[in-house]
Computed example of a mutant assay.
Amino acid sequence: MGILRLLLFTGVIVVNAQQAALTEDSRCGCYLLKGNETAYFREHRFFDFRNHDHHASVPPVIKEVKDTADAPVTSPFFNSTEWTDFWMISNWNNSHGIREDSTWLMVNSPNNVYLEANHDTNSSPKSWLSLRTQRLPEFQTTAEIESLSAKFKFVSIRMLARTIGARGAITAMFTYRHSEELAKVQESDLEIRTSDPKNIIHCTNQPSLNSEGDIEARASKNATMPNGLEWSDWAVHRLDWTPKSTTWYVNDIQVANTEFQTPKDVSNIILNAWSDGGEWTGNMTVGDSAYLQLQWFEILYNTTEPEKRQGQGGCNSVCSIDGSPQVGQPVMLWSNGAGRGLVLFRGWVPVTLMILLFLFA
């Protein structure tokens, strides 16, 4: 009875996850991550591309190098505050030899980032975001979006996505800290090679080579999609970068984890679809294309930038996006506000409560 009296005295109420109430981000002081490593995050963003069919249009591929990088955005959506206060669209090229084994010019273009209408009556979204890469006679036209901020320090990023198209391309979701010296680059990758078997994905902390230039086995995991899924199927891909490790999930099933070379410093968030004819990407046939397509993208994060929501009482109100019945909308786990108990997930017990259970059992 001792622990029961203690729980009642402290206002702790144990409930099923389904009973946790949907709430708004403005009411959340921080977010508790359910995963391989417990972590708290201060910020949450959700980008939903499923209902933008009014902005959807597939632009024709620009076939001239000189016009590719300078192409305008493909929709007014990419000029909206919803987009521009977080993302930018890359237009750099590899003419300065980004990768030593590249065999042809690769040019990122805003023309390859667009909203696409769904014409498949067997699936529900009205639209999705597409990142396109295509092999042209003179170069590879590619797509990349990256966060405006390079000050993310620990994140949980998720996307409902699929990769489709021809062999010889890479699609990816990753954190990235740039350095002119390869050994000082910090990066956590989820990569899909369209030349691979369709159930294999690559989960890596970079750099994945040792000081002798050999592959470091501890840095990379060739993971298998669970439950018979293929990377051409819609699935929720998730990457958790936490202080001790990087963990990868597909549909909430852990597929890889490593503590080796976990990034330590602030980084960007990047999504791309590309090829350069090198050993890693493979050689795409002229005229062929591949695509990374996203229905939505979600991120929990900490940054080194000033807090955006002052006066919220720190972590007095703790929320979660894990187990929420509404994707993109958090649930309230607990609040220390007047008249509020501490609400916990059954089967997900914080360390403090575990200690109390031990002491008073």
Score class of each variant (00 low, 15 high):
residue 296 W to C: 04
residue 266 V to R: 15
residue 252 D to M: 00
residue 31 Y to G: 04
residue 315 C to W: 13
residue 228 G to Q: 02
residue 198 K to C: 00
residue 69 A to D: 02
residue 173 M to R: 04
residue 166 A to M: 08
residue 27 R to D: 08
residue 59 P to W: 10
residue 249 Y to E: 08
residue 199 N to I: 05
residue 135 R to N: 07
residue 283 N to W: 12
residue 46 F to Y: 12
residue 308 K to E: 09
residue 188 S to K: 00
residue 191 E to P: 08
residue 128 W to P: 13
residue 236 V to E: 13
residue 239 L to T: 03
residue 306 P to W: 05
residue 22 L to V: 02
residue 248 W to K: 07
residue 50 R to S: 13
residue 151 K to G: 12
residue 81 T to P: 01
residue 341 G to R: 07
residue 155 V to D: 08
residue 85 D to M: 13
residue 289 S to L: 01
residue 355 I to A: 15
residue 83 W to C: 04
residue 181 E to Q: 04
residue 310 Q to F: 13
residue 220 S to I: 00
residue 349 V to D: 13
residue 361 A to V: 06
residue 18 Q to V: 14
residue 195 S to F: 11
residue 291 Y to W: 13
residue 269 I to G: 11
residue 280 W to V: 06
residue 357 L to R: 14
residue 116 E to A: 10
residue 326 Q to W: 07
residue 40 Y to M: 14
residue 336 N to G: 14
residue 10 T to Q: 09
residue 59 P to S: 03
residue 22 L to G: 03
residue 43 E to V: 02
residue 305 E to P: 01
residue 267 S to Y: 04
residue 83 W to G: 06
residue 108 N to P: 01
residue 135 R to H: 03
residue 117 A to G: 08
residue 317 S to P: 00
residue 263 P to R: 00
residue 194 T to L: 06
residue 260 F to K: 02
residue 136 L to R: 10
residue 18 Q to G: 06
residue 128 W to F: 10
residue 354 M to N: 11
residue 286 V to N: 08
residue 344 L to E: 12
